[in-house]
Amino acid sequence: MDLSVIKYCQIKNNACFLNGENIFQSSEEKTADKSLVELYRSRKIKYPKFFKMDKLAKTGFLAVDILLENTELYGTEPKYNTGIFLLNSSASLDTDEVYLETIGDNYFPSPSVFVYTLPNIVMGEISIRHKFFGENIFFVSSKKNNFAFYDYVNQAFIDNQMKYAIVGWVDYYRQKSDALVMLIKKQDKETELKFEKNTILNLYK
């Protein structure tokens, strides 16, 4: 089955691009996590839970929220058949390092940090926000163009008879946010942007 990319959104350090167009830029001096908060405010999103999220979840949450703006998937109408398939290289390592500090000499393990030491929590946050009850999987690979990831998305589309899926790369490690998420569907016309093995890499700015 051929799949095509309807929209894509990229967050890289202090900038955000929607379909390749720069829609947000914060100052260079700002740290990546402060810049994520600035991006949140600039989109006028009202979701206090955002501030409780770790940086990986903030990155993925924002990228997907911006991606879904003005689509039928945005909002709390339950959706049972939209897949979320994300990939990254550092899993939850950034938050793992934060949690480690809470179990050192000053031993007070933090439950609200520990819960984010699993990379799939970002998909939980996205699912809660937009009521996605469908399949979601967090994959980890050192490569952005992991061919098995691409094969999986294709087959999941067929097996689950999905209309849409949210797929892409969502990473955050040591003050570097790096996300490129896409909304994909079954191809209708050949002129549409094709979702292929190298699409994530090709769309990168």
């Binding site: 393990p109 933090s110 439950p111 609200s112």
Partner: peptide
Amino acid sequence: IDALELIV
């Protein structure tokens, strides 16, 4: 989770 954090 907040409740657990309050315990901490």
